[in-house]
Amino acid sequence: MGVRPDNRLADAPMHPVACTSCAARVLVRKASWQQTSVQWSDEAMAACSSWSPGSAVKGLPPVCDRLRDSIAQAVVDGTLPVLAPEDD
């Protein structure tokens, strides 16, 4: 079957963001101030110090607070672009 690539990533790909408190490196994309996508790799999951199995299923905040802060910091630092900042 094969799944097509996301048309949105062609124009604006994901950006690497490193967690400031552990060795996890993830790919992040912010389409707006309100919208955040995070792509983990198995390596990042292994490096993350706060993830626990099944957290997503229980509806717990899946991004740990420290990674959340790291993403916010990357935005503040200007290393992670917000694609549609004027909309909000």
Binding site: W33, Q39, A72, V76
Partner: peptide, 21 residues
């Protein structure tokens, strides 16, 4: 199977954050 997350949070006030940036 690798973890992917997508979040939309319309409840957080973003003005202060935006101003800081």
């Amino acid at each position: 199977t690798e973890r992917f997350e997508f979040e939309l949070d319309t409840t957080k006030p973003i003005e202060a954050w935006q101003r800081e940036v």
